[in-house]
Design a protein around this nucleic acid. Structure first.
Lengths: 139, 139
DNA sequence: CCATTTAGTTGACGATGTCAACCTTTTTTC
DNA sequence: GAAAAAAGGTTGACATCGTCAACTAAATGG
């Protein structure tokens, strides 16, 4: 037992919900990083290309590429900022909003399916724990 | 708010602890899938190449490749099975055991650092929730 | 004993992200 | 206010990584 139970579980959960876990695709033709990027675009006002890259830990070059991919798929649009001519504001399209809603439903269904296999006592704790972890990561 | 708080958090946590989150490397020269593969090898007796692939959701081709990478780095060895000449038993080396222990320490430290930023009430729930989630995924 | 199945490997390929060099626009500095 | 520095973004070359399909070798079953 070289790896503690907690770490083994954490890795499994991260892998399951991560890039390769859900058949390499979150939903439809959206990969995991594309989903995170799209969510960022949907929730940030006047979202620059680099802001997208930052939330993924990508270089600005990688940021350009993932935004371009989302644009080609019709989920976002790039608009030159009126305040700063260097900046591209990335904006979500209606098609992008639709697929985000769809992913949300699918994820929640996934979680519900898992909950039915878990001891009932821990089920109400899932939300608070995950949200607190995410808060700590961001903070 | 197209994506629920829970899903947003879940994606962030998966990304943070996943392939790209920790600088693309779990620890040293070990990528996330390599870590999972090595952990599998360390805990399974007479672990075949395909067993490694299965725990990652890889094809047998991908399994060969990740085992070869681990072998080149000196973390595992391949031995022809004495029972079945087709099968390669993948065995962890002392060097592989050492890095696993090191990753375990680093992960636990990471978690501790996060815990200090979380509301104290949820901290004791982290372990049970993560382990229960992992159990539900496996089951 | 030959046909089928199974474990594993390999070449070609596509997807994805980095690095470095570059252009453009803004900000700083003197 | 003009030159220099900095910042946002793009692009070509490249490395990594996993899949697909074709292959070899070993086991299994009529």
């Amino acid at each position: 037992m070289l790896i503690s139970e907690l770490n083994r579980s954490l890795a499994l959960v991260a892998w399951h919900f991560g890039p390769k876990g859900l058949n390499g695709q979150c939903c439809g033709d959206l990969s995991m990083p594309e989903f995170i990027a799209l969510e960022k675009v949907s929730s940030a006002r006047d979202c620059s290309v680099q802001a997208v890259g930052d939330c993924l830990g990508f270089t600005k070059s990688g940021a350009t590429r993932i935004v371009n991919r989302l644009e080609k798929k019709g989920y976002v649009e790039k608009r030159k900022s009126s305040q700063d001519g260097r900046v591209c504001c990335v904006v979500i399209t209606p098609k992008g909003e639709a697929i985000l809603k769809q992913v949300d439903r699918q994820y929640l269904q996934q979680l519900e399916a898992l909950q039915s296999k878990m001891p009932p006592a821990v089920v109400p704790e899932i939300g608070p724990v995950i949200i607190a972890l995410a808060g700590a990561i961001k903070g």
